[in-house]
């Protein structure tokens, strides 16, 4: 079970108290009307489906209700960064990825 500390309410919560919201950093085209079919369907459907480090959206749904961002290893569930939604991920690379 994944345990995350919400960066807003600072509570440690288990997966059951949280909602997973898929990959982070999915940009909605600024003006959908002029987006091409390809741009729009990329936005709708295309995800990296990473085996490894993935930046994701999570919601403290049974707690304070805030959406936040997490960098998680999809194989080991190791957590590298937890950020408020308006914060940017820092570009960390841990030398020993194998330790994940």
């Amino acid at each position: 079970m994944i345990l995350l500390r919400c960066p807003y309410c600072r509570e440690m919560r288990s997966e059951a108290e949280l909602t997973w919201g898929g990959e982070a950093g999915i940009m909605r085209p600024a003006d959908p009307a002029i987006a091409s079919d390809t741009e729009w369907t990329e936005y709708l459907f295309m995800r990296t489906n990473t085996k490894g480090w993935l930046q994701e959206q999570w919601c403290c749904s049974a707690g304070c209700g805030q959406w936040f961002k997490v960098e998680r290893h999809t194989v080991s569930h190791q957590i590298r960064q937890i950020l408020r939604f308006d914060e940017a991920f820092s570009d960390v690379t841990i030398a020993q990825e194998g330790a994940a």
Partner: peptide, 11 residues
């Protein structure tokens, strides 16, 4: 625009 509008003109 509204949510989902752009998808209404997809093939």
């Amino acid at each position: 625009d509204f949510i989902g509008k752009r998808s209404l003109t997809l093939p």
